[in-house]
Design a protein around this nucleic acid. Structure first.
Lengths: 188, 188
DNA sequence: TATTTTAATGAACACATGTTCAATATCTAA
DNA sequence: TTAGATATTGAACATGTGTTCATTAAAATA
């Protein structure tokens, strides 16, 4: 099933468009595979040739969004996890911008009937960024596992995002940045 | 649909037992409602009278487990979020004990094809505990929202648990406690 | 362009979902 | 204990799921 084959490209594009169309009408959980295929005018068997669940289709979008997250972290940036808290500049924290930019997607990602997969994709994305940073600055005390520490910090940030999501992203990005900066400053 | 009615009690009990039986054989995602009903010898229509999805049935177990979490936090305890980090005693951190006690359940809760609902139940449980504690000690700086701060701390702990889960809970409870204590000591 | 390769199709299958409704069995309260 | 209330049942229905297989159509390549 070569990804370059025009037939494959065409089929996937049709399925992507169909999913997007349906997502503007109703939540992912209420969309069926049969429905997507009807809209895309693609045989249902063909769907299963490429994906196992509708979630797999959704994941392809997510990949692109995760790339945006990574790009938004390209240099120049200064990390939020630097142990020297004085270095923190709220404006350098780009994660919240990213979330806001794709809040239509993140409303789906954080909705309660959706599988944990997407959560883990976000977690892994942030985890990798923080871990890279922690490793670069490598100031963590010996007795702390970098893995645990990264998981701790990454998920803490997602905790803020959950709280933000639950108020339907009403607070501004800069409010979130300030909250994070203030929290990290505690204990100085 | 009175909860006291013996018929209701009996039906729910049968469904609970059936779910438990099936869970010992295969993951929740591979268990169907029809299957649960067959094992429980309960009409499928009756299932829908009480629950919408098999997840609703699972949630009832979760409630009990959340009670254990709350109980494990009864006094005497000293909180992990006290801003004066010197007060932290790893032995007072009971969350990891709780997770380990119910690791059979938490393996399900953290599996990637399960809905986010369970994650939120755990999050809300820890969130409430930490918020109560933060409010009692109420040492958070003015500019920090207690909601955001609690969400941050609660999810950070779950971050450790995710990392723990991903290594199939191989580390000991005391390792987790020490990691948390060390992380909290950073920045002192 | 002609030939080969292979993705997509349509039909069919067994089974699951979610819902309805009249008939029945079981419980509660008098 | 009986009468009334109601939870449960079984049957049926339209639709979705996941899979199979021979056929067809569209792409790659030579």
């Amino acid at each position: 099933m070569s990804t370059n084959d025009l037939r494959v490209v065409k089929t996937k594009q049709a399925l992507h468009n169909a999913l997007l169309t349906l997502l503007s009408e109703k939540p992912l959980e209420n969309i069926t595979i049969a429905e997507i295929c009807r809209v895309a005018k693609v045989n249902r068997g063909t769907f299963y040739l490429h994906y196992e669940q509708k979630e797999g289709l959704f994941e392809e979008y997510f990949q692109e969004i995760m790339e945006d997250l990574n790009n938004s972290y390209e240099e120049p940036y200064r990390a939020v996890t630097t142990l020297d808290k004085n270095q923190i500049d709220p404006n350098t924290i780009r994660i919240f911008h990213h979330i806001e930019r794709f809040k239509l997607f993140y409303r789906i990602v954080f909705s309660k009937n959706v599988p944990l997969t997407y959560y883990y994709m976000l977690f892994d994305g942030i985890f990798a960024l923080l871990k890279r940073d922690i490793t670069i600055h490598n100031k963590v005390h010996d007795e702390i596992s970098i893995e645990y520490y990264s998981a701790y910090q990454a998920n803490a940030i997602i905790g803020l995002i959950i709280q933000w999501y639950r108020q339907d992203f009403e607070d501004s990005v800069s409010t979130l940045n300030k909250q994070l900066a203030s929290i990290l400053r505690i204990g100085e």
